[in-house]
Design a protein around this nucleic acid. Structure first.
Lengths: 210, 210
DNA sequence: AGACCCGTGTAACAAATGTTACTGTAAACA
DNA sequence: TGTTTACAGTAACATTTGTTACACGGGTCT
């Protein structure tokens, strides 16, 4: 039995289920910045996060992109859950935000465990619920906040996920994830710097307010 | 056994479950425009739609409002499902779009049936999936479309739900649901009228394009 | 009929966001 | 080392969206 599996999921699942997961899953260590799921991709395995963080992005045909939310340890991808019931195509793109350790479980077992373990059912429902609330939160931010507020919000999230107020990124990358243009981001970042909220460097910036 | 229950849910559930639903649920006929769920409200019953349509709105503290999507017959409210597992407070507001017939099931049974009936599990997962996709679609529209496109989209949805190209509403109401101002909607509607996409009347409008 | 309210039309302006173009400069690389 | 490339700063301008103010007219009520 993998120790880290027990550590992160031991409080959720009984030993019997933990053993099953342990037996049918494969471990993956994935470096930062790796795309692990693409839009339209058929999913056959379901990821359970042990360490690290993954960013989930919406990506449409016209090259439009938008950050939806981050996943952290103990999370699974509700979009993958989705694929086990109805349509099998991914609606989102997933990229590791930092070095990440996860185990992959063939989707076949999801259905089996739903009938067999109440703890698994609870986990799946809980996952759906959490993702749903995250999506609602994302909608709130897009619909109700102005770009400068969204930007600051984004920077805070990013600092939180990375556990570091120094954020390694470019204006262009931020622009993609917030679905706006590089010039707009540069402008707003400069404004934030004048307000002493951040310090700008090349290829990075530092968050001063939390 | 209610005939309409059999009609709309017979293909989803086995007779035994249909009987259970029939026995523990109460029927409600709700007129158009009635608020049936409010933000922050604790939910004790779960609605299953038999006839009609319900609009689901996001509503924040500052009075900001936004239409998320519509529910139709055969749908249930995934947000209510959400409340049965973790937090018990509603994150959304629900208002009948047209006269609506639905049955209310105490949330207690949801958990019981999850263990007992595979068809119920499938229904719940399917509901989550559908709502998730609807939320993604909502995000796409808000993030990637301009207000005039969102408006036309909204009018088409509304015509579809009501089964009528004549839409009874005011500019102010549209403005609330798209989270913008009345003046903006008047302006864009007038533009749509000049483009022969709609005809404007007082308290109503007619959609010409489908 | 007259008074009133509500929904709509529209102008004029303000603010936010998007676009294009050009500059300077740090880092990467040959 | 000099050259190249990617990133960032900024101006000038366009477009979209939001705001304020006011006029007009249909409907309702008395």
């Amino acid at each position: 039995m993998r120790q880290d599996l027990k550590t992160h999921y031991g409080h959720l699942f009984e030993n019997e289920l933990l053993e099953e997961i342990n037996n049918v899953s494969t471990l993956k260590n994935i470096p930062e910045g790796t795309q692990i799921i693409d839009v339209g991709q058929t999913l056959t395995k379901m990821p359970l996060l042990l360490e690290g963080a993954i960013k989930i992005l919406r990506d449409d045909d016209n090259g439009d992109e938008l950050l939806l939310y981050f996943l952290e340890k103990g999370d699974t991808c509700a979009m993958t859950l989705t694929c086990c019931t109805g349509s099998a195509k991914s609606e989102i793109k997933a990229i590791t935000e930092i070095d990440t350790k996860l185990i992959m479980v063939p989707v076949f077992y999801m259905e089996v465990w739903m009938g067999k373990y109440k703890s698994w059912r609870d986990f799946v429902l809980e996952s759906y619920q959490t993702r749903m609330l995250e999506l609602l939160d994302t909608i709130d931010k897009i619909a109700f906040l102005k770009m400068d507020e969204r930007l600051l919000n984004y920077l805070k999230d990013k600092a939180m996920i990375n556990g570091n107020t120094k954020i390694k990124t470019t204006h262009q990358e931020i622009a993609y994830e917030l679905h706006t243009s590089r010039v707009v981001i540069s402008r707003l970042l400069k404004k934030l710097e004048l307000q002493k909220a951040i310090v700008l460097h090349r290829n990075s910036l530092e968050l001063l307010t939390l």
